[in-house]
Design a protein around this nucleic acid. Sequence first.
DNA 1: AAACAATACCTCAGACTTTGATGTATAAAT
DNA 2: ATTTATACATCAAAGTCTGAGGTATTGTTT
Lengths: 112, 112
Amino acid sequence: MNNSQLYKGSLSLIILKLLEENKRMYGYEITQKVKEQTNGELVINEGALYPSLHKLEAEGLLTVSIEHVGNRPRKYYALTEKGEAETVNRLEELTDFVKHMQLLLNPKLSLG
Amino acid sequence: MNNSQLYKGSLSLIILKLLEENKRMYGYEITQKVKEQTNGELVINEGALYPSLHKLEAEGLLTVSIEHVGNRPRKYYALTEKGEAETVNRLEELTDFVKHMQLLLNPKLSLG
DNA sequence: AAACAATACCTCAGACTTTGATGTATAAAT
DNA sequence: ATTTATACATCAAAGTCTGAGGTATTGTTT
């Protein structure tokens, strides 16, 4: 994702949030969307993405439905109700994280 | 540190930044300072702290000097030149991380 | 027609960090 | 005398990610 360790733990939140906005997306689409929205600065590794999607599904936060475009299969993911609630929680965790970093590193990291 | 995975990778930056501000600190002091500055919200696990300090030292970012208060030993850590440079880099990585999260999650996370 | 790039899924060993438990010992407070 | 705080430490297990490798279809370029 990036050579920094800081991104660890953020992938599942990114997935959840993108699905909150886009209703349904498939894995490859998520990688493209992230690249696009960060101007190519953040690239999601598929070796991280697919296991993460499978885990979120196993936790009951996502549902999956397979579709075919020609002969190429796509797995569309969508948030469950539980997933919607969890997305809100995870976003709060991120704002808490930023708040704590702000308190510790004092500089100009602020919450809008 | 917190039940959220988001904090992974942030401990070494916290250590570096506290040492940048305080010149020299020992492990236990770092745990207390973090607790204090975050109003008890963030608690550093010693099982994470000590290995992290040892690693930063092994990487040449910190130097250590042992002192005794009574019979109780303290290991004071301080930044090396390399450590000072790395602290700047890691802070940039954090602002990049926040910037990218802002782009992806769009909400009200802003850089001051 | 062949070669390459993009689309679309996947797994797995190894690296890395953290949790939570456990351990040792001194100093201060009850 | 006992508990709490100070101060260091290790280690198995958990969790996530990297980087490499794999399969197969579709579109583009030579």
